[in-house]
Design a protein around this nucleic acid. Sequence first.
DNA 1: ATGTCTTACGGAAGACGTAATAATA
DNA 2: TATTATTACGTCTTCCGTAAGACAT
Lengths: 298, 298
Amino acid sequence: MELRDIEIFLTLAQELHFSRTAKRLHVTPARVSQSIKSQERRIGTLLFDRTTRTVRLTAAGEHLYRELSVGYEQIINGIEAVSAAARQSTGLLRIGYSTPWAGDLVFQTRKNFRTRHPECTVHVQEIQFSDMFGSLRRGEIDLQLSEYPVREADITAGPVIFCEPRALLVPSSHPLAEQDTVSLEDLAGVPLIRPGAQLPPYVLEYHLPSHTPAGRPIPQGPTYTYWHEVLSLVAAGLGVSPVATRAAEHHNRPGVAFVPFSDAPHLHYGFLKPAPLPNAHALAFAALAHELAESQPT
Amino acid sequence: MELRDIEIFLTLAQELHFSRTAKRLHVTPARVSQSIKSQERRIGTLLFDRTTRTVRLTAAGEHLYRELSVGYEQIINGIEAVSAAARQSTGLLRIGYSTPWAGDLVFQTRKNFRTRHPECTVHVQEIQFSDMFGSLRRGEIDLQLSEYPVREADITAGPVIFCEPRALLVPSSHPLAEQDTVSLEDLAGVPLIRPGAQLPPYVLEYHLPSHTPAGRPIPQGPTYTYWHEVLSLVAAGLGVSPVATRAAEHHNRPGVAFVPFSDAPHLHYGFLKPAPLPNAHALAFAALAHELAESQPT
DNA sequence: ATGTCTTACGGAAGACGTAATAATA
DNA sequence: TATTATTACGTCTTCCGTAAGACAT
């Protein structure tokens, strides 16, 4: 019986419907059923009378609802209050970014932001591609400048802040390295280096498509954990990787070459926020970053 | 931030000492440190000012303590109250047993128990050796009749209720099957079939020793998930297994033989209870079982 | 030197999704 | 038959222990 189970129980007690409960909590009905069942084993009695058509609280269920709802609210609000106080009193804003060029904008924004909000400290940290949304979900940061697309139920993606043309990172010995530009169709001939970690399918398919626009399959290359490994893998001739053209300025090294795409759509970047709570400082920071990016287009 | 983390935080806030906190919660100091650190990341500020010699609550820590302690108590007590009510009102006592002969005693006790406590329903269920303490820990049963030794910090082991001599389960084609008795020393020549699941080392070493009393190593055989598989594995000649002599009455089948040990100490059985809460019905049931076992020694 | 907290790493338990099944209308 | 709840099973995350390191007295 952890807080998550209690949340599931309380939600089901309100909705009296497994599928709706699941939807509200962004999980599957199966999970709701499993959680309720284990709580019933724990308590030692049924909490809901249910058929496939009706769900009703039992007496024990009502009793438990009365016992838990207040304490649950108190804990959730308490955590939120203390987090908010930590942000207020220290005036702390925690921001993550995914790539060095996104980081540049964040740091630059921070410089301006400080003059307007001297009461607010801004913590900046890099986010690993392998755990794109983890820090945001765990509430460890308030704002994240990230590649799009992002379509997550519990995350709000703000407007596009800036765009980046794309290039292909290839071994310098590879024939493609001689060309002025490459096409998405060229990917059919070279293995793509992939992240080893689990990412949403739409993110993977966007950045590392499985097929060219013409429909030809793109081979899969070795996997990496930290982005830095991609450079080594490419230099070793084990594969290629589509990147922002700007990566050439930050990640150039012997053995690799960056060849611009002639036909790949630009990468889009924007700010992600946890869906529930709009944070005044965070909004101000995002707006300021937007202005800055507009005033100095790449 | 689940209830477990909150428990760790609240305990540390009281103890102001990582190792003592760990001891109270039956975990390692490392775990306490990890949990606190992740909560601090979540909240966005330090909760404790600490060196290796002193631990003090920060202002934010005190604030959080005030916010969480009440709600936490309320939830824990609420769950306990509803569980207790479920046991009271339905008069429910849930009892687990590990082996058929333990089950026999439990069912027999239940028959007598019913006449004295007609208000109390007794649920009986078998416990898999592969998850010896899980049901008890999760609060799914109130009492468990089990093999000893049991030395778990969060479980109370009552007095020994009955004993069982031991025998070796061997393939009927094996030379040992011809003998009248076997010795623990004979184990040096035959692989022991082992449970695949994780069990406390002292339990494993007691039931399936790695060495004979004389110090000779005992080979390891294949593993099983459900006890029933042991019979098939032995019948297939893949190994042997020490068991209670009584197993011969319950589990005999073609291809296997039970040969009594001449020198193995008897197995002991007793009742396990979750450490915190002594349950009146449970105590009465255990006492009754004890009487019954005494009155009809095996 | 010793007791205490922290970090890195690995293994096991638990959360959760997918897919197939059962049950109600 | 359509909708909903449950179960079986597999995968991935997270919990937690071990062991080694860093600090303070």
